[in-house]
Amino acid sequence: MRTPVPVPPLGEQKQTETLLNFWFVEEGQDVNEGDDLAELVTDKAAFNLPAPAAGKVVKLLVKAGATVKPGDVLAELECPE
């Protein structure tokens, strides 16, 4: 089952200036639920974005250094049914 990983709300109201600073993972990597996938940075703090479920990272859809907003899908995981 493909599971999208979106940008969460992060407390930013303007929601225009969240930076995907870097990926902790690569495509093809297996992850457990809660493993850090990426670092997201707002004006107020750095956030570790965790895997919402265990699975394999099949696609990183956004490059490190890009500006993203809540709801944007950053990656796709292939998770067991």
Binding site: G34, D36, D43, N48, P50
Partner: peptide
């Protein structure tokens, strides 16, 4: 614009939000 924070200003987002 601050884009790097010290380690103690890092927060985990809940895995099951």
């Amino acid at each position: 614009r601050a884009r790097a924070f010290p380690e103690w200003l890092r927060k985990p987002w809940p895995a099951r939000y």
